[in-house]
């Protein structure tokens, strides 16, 4: 697993790891979503749409418990998942059922595949080290959509550009809290400097384990994971895939060196064959 080498000031690029440009002024901020206190009210979904004027995306009854939103997309930047599970835990006070709720969002990865593959520089790392699409630049090439290991970013029909959570970049520049974090009634969505959030999460997971909630787990807090740690990480009560999240997401840019090597070799192979087959003849 390649460790993202932040280096002194991030200039040291190895194809293995991608340094992240450091801004002197701002500290990295992000989300910590503690799904164990989420009440599934979807205030985050609405607050996000109201602030960012995200278009409504259809009235479709999905019969998936209380989730009629389905998934993150160009027109849904916060999605609350509902998972009804029978509990076998006899001691559980519940009447035989557990209801998991979790508000999903873009992970603003440390090594963000979307950012790294974007050919126009529409996606960029902000001074808050969040990942944002610049709508005046994006020409809808769609590369980020294939690159995102979480299936977060998507192209908007009829608009052509890609859209995703900006961690309320404009609000951050005004010193304000992102709309979803401000609205969240139980502060399941917590916003703040990432280091602080990671400490808080560690303490919370400790407390939950002490209370016997064994399957509580942090998802995306480890800087050593496949995307260098999330900017928006989670405390889940079950395996990530139960919530529709990939268990070991990877930003494929980490394998860029091997891919370029293979391509270079193949290119020389091509040149070689061409030379051998075409130039081997003496005139007449």
């Amino acid at each position: 697993m390649t460790i993202i080498d932040r280096g002194s000031d991030g200039t040291d690029l190895t194809l293995q790891g991608i340094g992240t440009p450091r801004y002197d002024r701002e500290q990295r901020v992000g989300f910590f979503t503690d799904t164990s206190i989420c009440i599934g009210c979807k205030a985050c979904e609405v607050a996000c749409k109201e602030w960012n004027d995200v278009p409504a995306d259809g009235l479709n009854f999905l019969a998936r418990s209380y989730d009629n939103t389905g998934h993150l997309s160009a027109d849904t930047w916060r999605h609350v998942a509902f998972v009804e599970q029978p509990t076998t835990d006899p001691e559980s006070a519940r009447s035989g059922v557990r209801w998991l709720m979790s508000s999903d969002v873009c992970k603003h990865c440390t090594s963000a595949a979307c950012l790294e593959v974007c050919p126009t520089g529409a996606l960029f790392r902000t001074e808050f080290e969040t990942v944002v699409v610049q709508q005046d630049i994006c020409n809808g090439c769609g590369y980020c959509v294939s690159a995102c290991p979480f299936g977060v970013i998507d192209q908007r029909k009829g608009d052509g550009r890609v859209w995703k959570c900006t961690l309320c970049y404009d609000r951050l520049r005004g010193g304000q809290t992102p709309a979803c974090a401000q609205a969240c009634p139980t502060q399941s969505i917590q916003f703040g400097p990432l280091e602080q959030l990671r400490e808080r999460a560690a303490a919370r997971i400790e407390a939950l384990h002490d209370q016997g909630v064994d399957d509580a787990q942090l998802y995306g807090d480890d800087p050593g994971d496949g995307v260098g740690g999330f900017g928006a990480f989670f405390l889940l009560l079950d395996k990530p895939e139960v919530y529709g999240l990939p268990p070991d997401p990877v930003s494929t840019t980490r394998d860029l060196r091997t891919m370029f090597n293979a391509a270079t070799a193949a290119a020389f192979g091509l040149l070689g064959i061409a030379a051998a087959t075409l130039l081997g003849q003496r005139r007449g």
Partner: peptide, 25 residues
Amino acid sequence: NLADWRGMGRTVQSERSASLEPRTD
């Protein structure tokens, strides 16, 4: 601006992004 020579941060920030502010301000 060699600090961001990979073109992932400030060098690719557009004029519009650089002047963004919340409408509440």
